[in-house]
Simulated assay, not measured.
Amino acid sequence: MDLTEKAELARKGDKQAFVLLIRTIQQSLYVIARSIVKNNEDSADAMQETITKAFTSIHTLKEPAYFKSWIIRILINECNQINRKKKRVSLLPYDLRKTSYKDEYEQVELFEVIDELDEQLQTIVTLFYIEDLAIKDISKVLEISEGTVKSRLFRARKLLSEIMLGEGEDKYELS
C-alpha cells in the first residue's frame, strides 16, 4: 500500500493507516525538524506537535497524494514557532543527526556546510537535496512560488560552492 492509499484510509478515520503513514515518513520529518531547530529535544517536540495536529485534522486533507507535503508544512510551522519562542541559536554536536546516509563523516561535513547558509536557504536545501522533494512540492510546502524556490536553490548552490572552494583553498595551501 502506498502513501496515497494510506492517506486516504487515514482521512476516512483509519487510525492504523495514520500510524503507518507516520512510521513511513518519520525519518524525513526528523531530518527536516532537526535542520530547522538544531537539537533533538526541539525536533522531538516539533514532531510530536505536528503528529498531533495532523491526526486531529487529517479529515481536512483535500488531496491524499499530497499528505507528505501537507504534514511537512505543519512541521515547518511548528519548528518556526519553536524558534520564535527560543529566539536564540543552540549549537549541538553534529553527530546527533543520525540518518541513513553513506558515511558518518560525509554526513557531518554536509550538515556543517548547510548550517553556514541562512535559515531560508537551509530549509530549501534540506527539502530539495536531503528529502528529495520536487521544486513544485517545496513551493507548496513553503507557500512560495516555484521561481522563488529556484532562485533560492541557485543562491544556495552558489554559496555552498563558495564555502566548499574556500575550505579547499585553506586545506591545500602550500607553505
Rank of each mutant, 00 (worst) to 15 (best):
A54C: 11
Y30G: 01
K68C: 08
R73S: 14
A65S: 15
A46L: 02
C79G: 05
P64N: 05
A46M: 03
K85S: 08
T52K: 10
S43E: 00
T60N: 12
A44N: 11
I51E: 00
V37G: 04
S35P: 03
C79P: 05
R73N: 14
M47Y: 07
A44D: 05
C79Q: 06
D45K: 10
K62V: 11
I36R: 06
K53W: 10
S43N: 03
N39D: 08
F67Y: 14
N83C: 13
I58V: 13
A65E: 14
Y66C: 06
I51S: 02
Q81W: 15
F67W: 13
A44I: 04
R84W: 14
T56S: 13
W70I: 05
D45M: 03
N39W: 11
T56K: 15
I51N: 02
I58W: 07
A44R: 11
T52E: 02
Q81A: 12
R73I: 04
K68M: 07
S57D: 04
H59S: 14
Y66T: 11
L75F: 03
R73V: 04
A65R: 15
D42P: 05
F67M: 08
T60D: 06
S57I: 05
K53C: 03
I74A: 03
I72S: 07
K68N: 06
T52A: 05
S35W: 12
K62A: 13
I72F: 15
A54I: 01
C79D: 01
A54Q: 01
R73P: 03
F55A: 09
I36V: 12
A46E: 00
L75G: 00
R73A: 14
Y66Q: 12
N40D: 06
S57R: 15
D45H: 09
I71C: 02
I51L: 02
A44G: 03
E78Q: 13
K53F: 13
K53Q: 11
L75E: 00
Y30K: 04
S69G: 07
A33C: 04
E78W: 13
N83A: 10
D45L: 05
K53E: 03
V31W: 09
I51M: 04
R34D: 00
V37L: 07
I82L: 14
K85I: 10
I72L: 15
T52V: 10
I76G: 01
F67G: 02
S35A: 13
F55T: 01
T60K: 15
I36K: 09
K68Y: 15
K62I: 14
K85P: 01
E41P: 02
F55P: 00
F55E: 00
I82H: 14
A44H: 11
I32V: 14
K38S: 08
E49K: 12
E63N: 15
N39S: 09
R84D: 09
I74E: 00
H59K: 15
T50I: 02
I32K: 05
K68Q: 11
Q81D: 06
I76P: 05
L61P: 03
S35Q: 06
I51Y: 02
F55C: 01
E49S: 09
Q48S: 09
Y66G: 06
R34E: 00
N40S: 12
N83P: 09
N40R: 15
N80D: 01
Q48M: 09
W70Y: 13
E78G: 05
A33M: 03
Y30T: 02
S43G: 09
A46K: 05
E49L: 08
W70T: 03
F67N: 03
M47S: 02
Y66P: 01
S35C: 07
